[in-house]
Design a protein around this nucleic acid. Sequence first.
DNA 1: ACCTCATTCAAACGTTCGTTTGAATCCTAT
DNA 2: ATAGGATTCAAACGAACGTTTGAATGAGGT
Lengths: 216, 216
Amino acid sequence: MSDPAIPSPAAESSSSDTATRILDAAEALFVEHGFAATSVRAIAARAEVNLGATHYHFGSKEGLLGAVIHRRVAPINVARLELLAGLEATEPAPGARAVLGAFFAPLRGSGTPAVVPRLMGRLFGEPERISRPLIERQFGETFERFTAALARAMPGVGSQEIRWRFHFAIGAMIHQLRTGAPPATPSDPDAIGQLIEFAVAGIERDPRAPQQEPTP
Amino acid sequence: MSDPAIPSPAAESSSSDTATRILDAAEALFVEHGFAATSVRAIAARAEVNLGATHYHFGSKEGLLGAVIHRRVAPINVARLELLAGLEATEPAPGARAVLGAFFAPLRGSGTPAVVPRLMGRLFGEPERISRPLIERQFGETFERFTAALARAMPGVGSQEIRWRFHFAIGAMIHQLRTGAPPATPSDPDAIGQLIEFAVAGIERDPRAPQQEPTP
DNA sequence: ACCTCATTCAAACGTTCGTTTGAATCCTAT
DNA sequence: ATAGGATTCAAACGAACGTTTGAATGAGGT
């Protein structure tokens, strides 16, 4: 009666083809329809595995979601933190552009085109009961590390203000990841590059917030 | 056998208390859990109405979602277009800040605190089959009008570039609407004001995109 | 050869889903 | 007062849901 939902540690990455096929199918369907609107049966059918296999390997539907997210997001956050560490090893206080570059760049060529981004976009749209623990576990450390780096890059801006600006930049990222190019735009030249430029401008702006002219 | 899903036109706004209570309950639950994860039964229970009433008044669960969205979003887009029209009547080519102010300002005091924003945030997270038609119907005209106004405000920037930047600004808005303040920030001073500043900086930035320094 | 144990499989579990039905009830205009 | 349409109600429909079960199957070690 060993718990197959938490298989032997070695089996995590060298698991049989079945678990991988389930992950692939679940990922595709979660991206397309979201978590609640995707049934375990549809996942099993797409993966061409038995219905029970999903619960055997991942314990529950939520466990499956966690595994899907973790498989894609963990490497990206590792790359982010490595880039940031390398940056800070080179120069004592890297600029905001370099820090944001380290944050956004790992989103580029991340395997299958656009599946990682759209998966993360979906995650942020799920009910908080489901998404919050996953987001916290996957992004908490990364968020804090980059917030601190941004604060060091811009000593004149308060810590709360830094959080707000980074918050908006992440929002632009999520939206880009979820919806792709804006409507009625033909090609997709370099969305991440565009995103970086937008985020740098929004974050590096003058620390004093100018009075907004009231709209009549 | 008249179709109660499309009641007599006059009844749309002067409908009985039941329909309004259903809208209120559905709105709260859609905001909290999303569309797919909310059951019609839970809506009826929260509204304290009979289960059948929802289908009697709105035809189907999707019809109910459409009504929930329309009730909140339509007035905001009307206000946006009115503000923009007033702006353009005063001066021939209003600046980007003024245009964005007209776009974001109606999000402020929109009735119940934060329900409109979070509802819109949810809408953008639903499966495309559900969200796309609603978004197109509710936001299509507004998006085009403001894109055109931004293009007029910044003659030096190409039309595609304008769309990209507006796209990111909307992303920052959606994220702010869905998640509220960034984590570990105590109070909520003026999120919309913060958002406007961020969007203005990202959109009004120098039209030439500077080379990004490669992250080592 | 046999035992072991991880994995797969078909079938069914009980629950909940969106929707439908038809009678009961309320409101309004005559 | 009363007829008639609009609305509410309790009950049920079939389908789909996540999960569980227990036997069948397979490969590996002794």
